[in-house]
Nucleic acid binder design. Structure first.
Lengths: 251, 251
DNA sequence: GGTGTTTATCGTCAAAGAGACGACTATGAT
DNA sequence: ATCATAGTCGTCTCTTTGACGATAAACACC
């Protein structure tokens, strides 16, 4: 027995600060982008960072993430089991707790992943600090030694979030979270192309998504906003898992 | 600006206790089992609970989980990116932080998922408390209103861990973590059958796993420990993701 | 030794799905 | 009118799957 009798007494153990950080992704101009905010205080003052903040005393983790999301974007989302509401999807990503990840004290960050459609305001307001949508390729591209690093371990968190999003749109209907309420098959295809960084065959893609039951439901209208022949409009169907999955072309 | 200037000052925010809990799964006698320990102190004194404990001051989350695993089973594992070592796989599962999940104070638990081969000792020693392998079906089965509940929110954590394991053996080579270093195709098939709770066609399964490059590598020998015709022995190959995945029969 | 039982392994066949790509349609731009 | 742009429907082939027959090599029993 190498443990003190107080092993089960939480007050006997050193306190941690708990934060939530948000990997908020969207697709803008055919590129996968993440929301960054500029830090106004040390440490990492002036660095770009993922939006986030401390979990409040009476607040659950998902609640805190949902609140942060609303503060940054005005979007509403529920963090429960990957629920989509008011256009935003929010789910827990992973927790980062390296002892030295914050130089001031022991901080454990519960990162969340949020997927949102392209938002009307390029730089979401509601906060005096600077904020921007940064193309993920500029932040994580290999060999980009010249880029300015993100604060803390946020580059790692971002990479994990992007990887989660990339793999999750394979076997779930989550890609629709990047689209407005009504969208065309072509718009959905461009989401996949942007997130995966590939080009997909429009005909096979069309056959696949329209043939997967519950993925898309026709909403009746058509649109011509992409140019070319008018395209049928769809809404996200009730399906959450895709069986069989969308296949990411092997690179 | 609804935030205090101390928004970025961790010491200005209320402290949390941070624990790691372990969903440690194995396959025993064709059944998926989880390791439970009996609580010796309030709250939930006498209840069965997932093994776990507080994260120490200088310790990372994965480190803490790895230490707990070693304390409970003697197994070594590294939590880094799903690395398998000395027969055990360990990865972060999810974090649970409902404000009232521990009646004493605010505790955030970073749950980890561990997969191990059937261990020699039925009741792992190293700890004075009681411990047992409980079949998952007895803990989570639907409609079992008579079963004794687990401590805290551990039933939820266990359910999430089991679901993660079930889905992860579909598209990764993780099922081999349930097997000893050398194993036969039939033994691997029984792992899938136990975890998924289905029966699989031995011929199609054999074709599938031996045809997936990097999944299995022949180790040269054969064994007859299962009775019947001697079976070829394999070791886990280097592959971590299976493409195409194993398909769970639709129920 | 036979015979049955058990498990492993190979083969065959039909159905489903994926990738490649031709053809046609309906819009706007020039 | 012609062209460019996107969308949609089909066709063909190849791969993979699921169902299942057949054979092989051990052991248990008579």
């Amino acid at each position: 027995m190498i443990y003190p009798m107080s092993r089960y007494d939480p007050s006997a153990f050193p306190p941690f600060a708990v934060t939530v950080d948000l990997v908020l992704l969207t697709v803008r101009e055919h590129e996968l982008c993440a929301l960054l905010v500029r830090r106004g205080e040390p440490p990492f003052q002036g660095y770009w960072a993922l939006p986030g903040g401390f979990v409040r005393p009476g607040e659950g983790l998902g609640e805190a993430a949902s609140r942060e999301l609303a503060e940054e974007t005005g979007l509403r989302a529920h963090a429960s089991p990957g629920q989509v509401m008011a256009g935003a999807h929010l789910e827990q990503l992973a927790t980062y707790g390296h002892p030295q990840r914050d130089p001031r004290m022991r901080v454990v960050s519960v990162a969340h992943l949020a997927l949102a459609p392209d938002l009307p305001t390029p730089k979401p307001g509601g906060d005096a600090r600077g904020a921007r949508w940064a193309p993920v390729s500029e932040l994580l591209g290999p060999g980009r030694t010249d880029r300015e690093p993100l604060a803390f371990d946020h580059e790692l968190i971002l990479a994990d979030g992007v990887e989660r999003a990339r793999s999750k749109i394979e076997y779930s209907a989550l890609a629709t979270a990047f689209c407005p309420e009504e969208f065309t098959v072509g718009e959905l295809r461009r989401v996949y192309e942007a997130v995966w960084g590939v080009v997909l065959d429009p005909r096979n893609f069309h056959r696949k998504v329209t043939g997967t039951p519950g993925f898309l439901v026709p909403s009746g209208g058509t649109t011509t906003r992409q140019g070319g022949r008018p395209a049928q409009l769809f809404k996200a169907g009730g399906a959450t898992v895709l069986n069989p999955p969308m296949l990411r072309p092997e690179s």
